[in-house]
Nucleic acid binder design. Structure first.
Lengths: 143, 143
DNA sequence: ATAGCTGCAAATGCTTTGCAAGGCC
DNA sequence: GGCCTTGCAAAGCATTTGCAGCTAT
């Protein structure tokens, strides 16, 4: 059930550089997690899935640290949080403008490039409010 | 802090009829909750807010029953669940096609009529999947 | 009568936090 | 050395569930 066809994780040096850039101290755990997360531009993880993955790779990182790290990465702009499921939080390594397909049954997220979808007719928000972001979630199910 | 300008709740008879229609037994608690929920077509509640409201009205209903009732109403098609916040579930009395503004800071949901927003360019979902629904959440903040 | 509901309290599942020990600069 | 980070375990929340007692039909 492990992901067989993923590019090898990025080097510790790359991960370290990336962390320093974001103003985060490159600890062993962060470097390890960054290595797994940023190997390509399209990953969706939950704290648990990432913890399983890093644990499966033989690295010891506590679940609490995974949670903390995901939030730190998010604050640093390295990740984006995606809210589609009441039960758990997803984190997306793609921080750019894009939307998602979501397969609720399996907890699967699939990116939709930002230019693909056009949302027209968004009304002006009520007085005193301004638009922060427009999220589109295309909920899908298996046929 | 109570909502001062809300229409009086619908009569117990109306609520009862509505419940029977949905195939739900009109118990005291359900009639009471339905009366509060369906007084107009645009309410967004959480289990806790509804529990506070019904309790504040001097009616005794346990929080567990509020949760159960919200889910039963949702299954019966009387409510729709809205997922915009990782921390809590919202239920919307408007079950028709429409979208939402969401003020995260205050947990406030505001309806956007279905015809207002047009989402174009939704790509065909990956093979084996079909679109269930397209949710648009316009996240706003106070100026 | 009886199948279905309710309420309480306990349990659950995800997430956060306090704090001592350890690691990076 | 000093400050930041980690890890564990405990705490926290929203939500769900088991089950005895109650209620609508």
């Amino acid at each position: 059930m492990a992901k067989a066809s993923r590019e090898p994780k990025i080097s510790a040096e790359e991960a370290t550089a990336r962390l320093r850039h974001a103003g985060l101290r490159p600890t062993r755990q962060r470097v390890e997690l960054a290595g797994l997360l940023f190997q390509d531009g399209d990953r969706h993880v939950t704290a648990e899935s990432l913890h399983d993955e890093v644990s499966g790779a033989g690295v010891k990182v506590s679940l609490a640290t995974v949670y903390n790290t995901l939030h730190q990465f998010t604050e640093a702009g390295l990740l984006r949080q995606v809210i589609v499921d009441a039960a758990r939080s997803y984190f997306d390594t793609n921080t750019g403008d894009h939307q998602h397909f979501f397969l609720e049954k399996e907890g699967l997220l699939i990116d939709i490039p930002g230019e693909t979808i056009a949302v027209a007719g968004v009304p002006a928000p009520p007085p005193g409010l301004s638009v922060d972001r427009v999220d589109v979630v295309v909920r899908v199910r298996r046929n």
